[in-house]
């Protein structure tokens, strides 16, 4: 499938900033099932850009801007060819061993309620892979999917107490549940093609991957209840959503900021 992505991020500052340094995790990489046909990051002002990699192997772009600056617009556009492989990730660039992804973080801390839930919806007879599928479906059934923008800093444990969940919250809850079952699990940020035509969304997409010995990393998207196939564009992975966030930024200056995000994913040739 040929997917085209247009991801626009706009920051507006209430006071002019004297400097801006941002780390962008906004560039997808090739895997056996994902080929980046073209991809570009455009900035609406004079900026110095540097390519690199973070510790998780994600492609990063460092962005340096001198002020005074009262806003910035980051426009990411590209085309990606995806193919079908039952959710198993093949040929991704891996720096760290799966065992690392058993580690809890602040937003994916161990949580008794989630662990109990995971234990309740699974049976030992299902085996690891069966159990993970079951958790994925059970989470999808339990929460209403909220396509809006996630609330900052809401951890998995707190999200589990609500009735609806954003894709980020779904993914982080899945990660906590999977780890409680002993499976390494990680957060994936990226894009999702939805069925609706010309659908503008206020946030990129997030889902999870869990590791099963013998198979490797397998994608799970509790937001859709399925395993990612051709509709997902995989961009960055980390222990949690914050680690895989598209933008980590720092600015030098007073005042607050306003963020606007607009994501359009469409299928080419339709």
């Amino acid at each position: 499938m040929r997917l085209s992505v247009d991801h626009r991020t706009i920051y507006r500052f209430t006071e002019p900033q004297s400097r801006l340094v941002q780390m962008l995790r906004m560039t997808p990489q090739n895997t056996h099932d994902q080929t980046v046909a073209q991809w570009r990051i455009d900035i609406d002002c004079d900026a110095r850009l540097r390519q690199g990699r973070d510790g998780f192997g994600n492609a990063i772009t460092m962005l340096y801007i001198d002020g005074p600056i009262d806003g910035i617009e980051i426009d990411v556009t590209g085309e990606v060819l995806t193919s079908h492989s039952d959710g198993v990730v093949h040929g991704a660039y891996e720096v760290l061993p799966p065992a690392l992804f058993l580690r809890p973080t602040e937003t994916t801390a161990q949580d008794k309620a989630i662990a109990d839930f995971a234990a309740r919806v699974t049976t030992p007879a299902q085996g690891r892979i069966g159990a993970l599928h079951r958790v994925n479906e059970a989470l999808h059934e339990r929460f209403t999917a909220n396509p809006g923008r996630p609330e900052p800093n809401l951890g998995a444990a707190a999200a589990f107490r609500l009735d609806s969940a954003t894709s980020r919250d779904f993914a982080q809850m899945f990660i906590v549940a999977a780890r409680s079952l002993g499976a390494p699990a990680r957060y994936v940020s990226g894009y999702l093609l939805t069925e609706r035509e010309d659908d503008h969304r206020p946030t990129p997409h997030g889902w999870a991957e869990a590791h099963v010995d013998g198979l490797g990393w397998i994608g799970f998207d509790p937001f859709t209840g399925d395993c990612p196939e051709e509709h997902h564009v995989r961009v960055a992975v980390a222990l949690d959503a914050a680690g895989a966030a598209p933008v980590a930024g720092s600015r030098l200056g007073e005042g607050g900021e306003r963020l606007e995000v607009d994501v359009v994913v469409s299928r080419d040739g339709q």
């Binding site: 990699r53 510790g55 998780f56 192997g57 720096v95 760290l96 065992a99 690392l100 058993l102 580690r103």
Partner: peptide, 14 residues
């Protein structure tokens, strides 16, 4: 090692 907070995945490969 992998479960140890002192192991910093953020700089792996550097």
């Amino acid at each position: 090692v992998m479960g140890n907070a002192q192991f910093r995945p953020e700089i792996a490969g550097m």
